[in-house]
Each structure stands twice: as structure tokens, then as C-alpha cells.
Design a protein around this nucleic acid. Structure first.
Lengths: 193, 193
DNA sequence: GTCTATATTTTGATAGAC
DNA sequence: GTCTATCAAAATATAGAC
């Protein structure tokens, strides 16, 4: 897939806009960023930006989809999610407060029934719970996790803890160590009977 | 403390505005509610409302403080928070999606460094963690919780799970049973060694 | 305490030139 | 593909009458 051709310039600009929009949405939230501001940071006029994404919401949804892909190799991300990966992602997120804020604020906004992002987050959580629950069943089969655990319940709980700890961490980064706490939780669950 | 006197009318109106603002912020989030809208629902003009709260942010902060008080008896709320209370609050919240949404979206907004609500949530989490950790120490002393648990870590984790489960529940109310999952988590932790 | 009227900004989006 | 110019709608906040 060459980057050359008649569309190369447009595609490159699109990528740049998406990067900048990601950062701005992460910093300030959807409603507090104007298209003008994203355009200015991208070295474009507002109308120039709206040539690439004809509405603000279209740009926003594209940014959301992109966020998932940045969590490491997209292929790996999509196919071998596990408890270990979940904890690893939380640990890595401690170096990316902007991304964490994007996720926290966008997922909160998505709870609005009318939000365009709602569908995105609903299916994302369904998928995530499924991946983690499947991994737990695998660990039970190999004796690495106790049979007493309910895989679906524990999957929900681990994901919930990850989200909640990210929120606490954003508010008090020195007090809350997300990675350590996730490990503590998983160790405790594995040692329950 | 009588409700009579020269200020009775103003105070009553203030209360009414706060109730309505609470509901609207909960439904739509801070940025998507206008002062005009709150005023209209309160039977006032915009200028009439701004006589009671001179800026939108002032009104918002007042609503936030009020939210805490609605979580049951304020006195009890403030003085005997415990693991049991935390789980009970989550269970009760399943009948109040509006309030849950308010909390989720307002806490997410508060992660903005410049947010006026930030200070409110930072101190709220510090206080909550402290209350829950203290309760866990008490349970350990009476033999109702294993000594192997780190009270501060478990407090953070339980609160995080509560927040994260509320988010998942808002997005998929039929699949996620917050109360059951919180109980599952706490039981597992108590049975770990 | 509440109103009408208005100042001032800012927003998302479009039209049309180049 | 990007610009300038512009529109229409909304927002917060204030001034001043009653």
C-alpha cells in the first residue's frame, strides 16, 4: 500500500488532524474543543478542516476508533486480550495521562442515550468482557486460576477496577498506583476459594 | 430553623432551581445544559435565575455539594461509611440512573486540571478511601476480614470497582448487575489468603 | 426577586473563489 | 485542497426598569 499517488497529501493531512484532535479532545473533552481550534493547530482554516471531516461528530468518531489502535499493535490487541494484557495496558497508561483522560471522559459522555459514541463503547465493553472471560476460562483449565471464580463476573470486575483506578489516578497521581493495585486485585482473586 | 422570614421565598426558589439543575446536569452533562434551560424549567427567565447563582459554575458547584447529601442521611453518610455502605449505595443507585450519570460524567469532567469540580472530587476520593480503609481495619480486628488484605489498597479497589461497574451498567443495564458484582468482589477478597 | 432588552462571544456549517 | 467571507444560532453575562 504505497503512500504515493494523487491522494497522498490529503491522507497525510487527515492523519495529522486526527493526531491533533486526539490530543485536544483528551485535554478538554468534546464540548470544550472547537473545530476552529483543531483547525488552527493543524495549520488550516476551519473550512479547510471540514473538507476532510465534514462534521465535528464525524471527526470525533474517527478519533475514537483510532484510539483503540494506539493501544499497541492493533492485531495483537484485537486477538489475544487477556487478564495479563489488561493489567499491562493499565500499567502503560500511567505514562499517558492524555489518553487516559480521553478514555475516561469519552466513555462518560457515551452514557448519554443520544451520544454517537454510545454504540462504540457498548460494543467495546461487550467485546472486552468476552475476551477477558475467555482468558480466565483458559487459566482455569490449566490450573492457573481457581475454579471457584465466575469468569464473566471477574471479567466485569477487573475491567471496572481498571476504569475506576484510572479515574482515581487522574485525580491523585502520587497516591494511586494503578498497576500495583490491579496486580493486587488479580492476585487476591486468584487466591480466593 | 424556621422557613419563614424575609428570605423564605428566595430560599425555596433556590432549592427548586438546584433540584432541577441536578436533573438536567445528570441527563446531559455540564456543557450541554444552558442556564436558560434550567431557568425555563424553573419558571424563571435566565436573568431571574442568575439572581440566585450569579454564574453557571457557581450553580454547578452548589449542585455537586448537594449530590452528596442526597445519598441518604447526610450525617450517617459522613460519619459511618463502610464497605457495607459502599455496596448498599451501589445497589440503591441501580434505581437512579440519572444520579449515576451525573456522578460518572461530573467526575470525568473533574479530571480536567482547570475544572472547578476537581478539588471537590479529589477530596471526596481521599475521604472515601479513608473511610473504607478504616472500616476494613475494624473488620480485620474483629476477625471478619483476613489480615492478609492491605486496607488502603482494598479500599481503592472497591471504590474503583464501584465506579467502573456503574459505567458498565449505564451502557448495558440488562447485562451488568452492579450489586451482585460488588458482593462477589467483596466475598472473593474476604476469602483470599 | 424578577423581568425585558441587549452586549458580546463563540459556535458549527456553508458558499464560492482560486 | 484550501482559502475568505459569511450565516444563523446559541451561549454567558450585564444593565436597568419595576
Amino acid at each position: 500500500m504505497s503512500a504515493r499517488g494523487p491522494y497522498a497529501k490529503g491522507i497525510a493531512k487527515r492523519e495529522q488532524i486526527l493526531e491533533i484532535a486526539l490530543d485536544l479532545f483528551a485535554q478538554k473533552g468534546y464540548d470544550r474543543v472547537s473545530v476552529r481550534e483543531i483547525a488552527r493547530e493543524s495549520g488550516l482554516s476551519q473550512a479547510g478542516l471540514l473538507h476532510h471531516f465534514s462534521t465535528k461528530e464525524e471527526l470525533f468518531l474517527e478519533v475514537l476508533r483510532r484510539r483503540d489502535d494506539r493501544d499497541g499493535d492493533p492485531v495483537e490487541h484485537r486477538h489475544i486480550h487477556s487478564v495479563e494484557h489488561l493489567i499491562g495496558a493499565v500499567e502503560r497508561n500511567a505514562s499517558e495521562p492524555g489518553l487516559v483522560r480521553l478514555f475516561v471522559s469519552m466513555s462518560a459522555e457515551s452514557t448519554d442515550e443520544a451520544s454517537l459514541a454510545r454504540e462504540f463503547f457498548v460494543s467495546r465493553y461487550q467485546w472486552l468482557r468476552d475476551e477477558v472471560a475467555t482468558d480466565i476460562r483458559k487459566l482455569q483449565a490449566s490450573g492457573e486460576a481457581p475454579e471457584s471464580l465466575d469468569p464473566d463476573a471477574v471479567a466485569s470486575i477487573l475491567i471496572a477496577a481498571a476504569d475506576g483506578l484510572q479515574l482515581q489516578w487522574l485525580l491523585d497521581k502520587d497516591t494511586v498506583d494503578m498497576g500495583v493495585l490491579m496486580t493486587t486485585l488479580w492476585d487476591s482473586l486468584r487466591q480466593s476459594h
